[in-house]
Computed example of a mutant assay.
Amino acid sequence: MSLALRLTGAEVLTPAGLADTPLAISDGLITDTTPVREVDLSGHLILPGLVDAHGDAFEKHLAPRRGAMKDLDQGLIVAEAELAANGITTATLAQFYSWEGGMRGPDFARRVLESLDDIRPRVGTDLRVQLRFEISMLEDYATIEDWITRYAIPYLVFNDHLPHDLLAKGKTPPGHVGKSLRIGKNPDRHLEDIQALHAGMDAVPAALDALCARLSDLPVRLGSHDDNTAAQRAAWDARGVHIAEFPETAEAAEAARATGAPVVLGAPNVVRGGSHKGNASALDLIAMGLCDALASDYHYPSMRRAAFLLADGGLMEFAAAWGLVSSGPARLLGLTDRGTLSPGQRADLVILDAKTRDICATLSAGQVTYMKGDVAARFVG
């Protein structure tokens, strides 16, 4: 149920900055009219809901134990509750389509897409999907093109996780046997398959050129993942792949900025103070002006924490820092109806305790998706 309320007493993050001003919502939108009912939120902050451009923390709910992957709809519903508890009103679930198999394999990806279609009408958070496609899978290019239309996939990202250096030397990747057994595949057969994918990489650039040309006529945004060099980013840009996710170096991030490609960095990288893989520090890239959005990556709470860390550390003003987790990702995803608390925008908002910064409530399109404690009492009182 979408609420009609006038929220008073709180500091509201408006397009002009934080202000002690009422915020009215009605029919799922921010409005400049005055609903009859008021809720006093003194002592709280009202901020735009978080827009996550890339998150895979939902995976743990789909397979809490090895092999327990039968009821994906229930896992997605629980994941949605976690998203809402972290202030996320728009979530992009990053699902692999990979030679790695198991939860990253094509069959599992199809099941996730079908389950998402089933549960979306039953939840309040706007659940979107990003398909992460391994470019070495030449025989699957037609399937990807079909799925984008069949499942209305709005965002496709190109990955390449093959251990090319090891395979070129004829070596077996570390942990190969264990990984093969976990996905129920014979290790020798699995090694043969990834060696064949590696051997076929010469055909990938032309195949990508053709695929991206065909996709240019479809309503799908294209991104590259883990760019390492300016040359890599330039090649993607020439194909119309205009979002740069998690560039591994400042060189790649600068190349993206030079062509106007939005740069997505990981919020956990900010919170940790650096990359867990030894790549470029998100803090350094942000200081260089090379970030348009912070994504949850593998940890939903990091989005909120990263925004406050950036503001508290003096790296940027709070409004700009919060923009990296709200209006910035909304913009690069083409979602013009959210990201700011302006009349006519979706009533996507998060209510925080001003002292503790704990999330007290989340509303998505004016619908309560999470609420607790004193704020809940004020709403129902």
Rank of each mutant, 00 (worst) to 15 (best):
W99S: 12
A256N: 02
L72F: 07
L131E: 14
V177D: 06
G175W: 02
K169T: 13
A361H: 03
R189Y: 05
G49R: 05
I25S: 00
S2T: 14
L83F: 15
G170M: 01
N228I: 15
G75M: 05
Q367Y: 02
V325D: 00
D209A: 04
A321D: 11
S275W: 00
S180N: 00
L5Y: 11
I183R: 15
S342V: 08
R110Q: 07
A377D: 15
E317S: 15
Y370L: 02
N186Q: 03
L93I: 10
A234Y: 02
I144T: 04
E82I: 11
A347E: 07
A244V: 09
M371T: 12
L131D: 12
L352T: 06
L93P: 01
E59K: 15
E100V: 10
A19F: 10
D160L: 11
V263M: 09
R357L: 14
A79G: 08
L333P: 02
P15W: 10
A196H: 03
T362S: 12
H242M: 08
E82V: 12
L138T: 08
L341Q: 07
M69S: 14
G328A: 07
E82Y: 15
V78A: 14
K185H: 08
F158R: 10
S2Q: 13
S342L: 10
A63T: 09
A16G: 04
A57S: 11
M201C: 07
N159W: 14
K355F: 05
L18C: 10
V51T: 03
A244Y: 03
G200L: 12
L47C: 06
M103C: 00
Y97T: 13
A365Y: 00
R304L: 15
R189A: 15
D71I: 00
D56R: 11
N86L: 09
V264H: 02
N228S: 09
M288N: 05
L285H: 08
G184C: 03
A24D: 01
G274T: 15
G373Q: 01
F108E: 01
G43L: 11
L285F: 03
L211I: 06
L23G: 08
K171C: 11
M69I: 06
W99L: 14
A68E: 11
G313S: 06
V78I: 13
D52H: 08
T89W: 00
S296W: 10
L3C: 04
N269C: 04
E100C: 01
A109I: 03
A321P: 14
L332C: 02
L162A: 09
H190M: 02
R122P: 00
G278S: 07
H276N: 05
A210P: 04
V241F: 10
V129Q: 05
L72D: 10
Y300I: 03
L45P: 05
S42G: 12
L47M: 15
E192N: 12
G240M: 02
M303Y: 04
D209K: 00
P154V: 09
S216D: 07
A10E: 02
I148T: 11
R150A: 13
G314S: 06
G170Y: 04
D56S: 06
A68V: 09
E192R: 15
G289V: 11
C291Q: 10
A282V: 04
H44K: 12
G274D: 01
A330N: 11
V51I: 08
D20C: 13
L211T: 12
R37T: 04
H176N: 07
S296F: 10
P329S: 06
G278T: 11
P187W: 08
R233Q: 13
D146V: 13
L335D: 06
T259K: 15
A231M: 02
L349G: 02
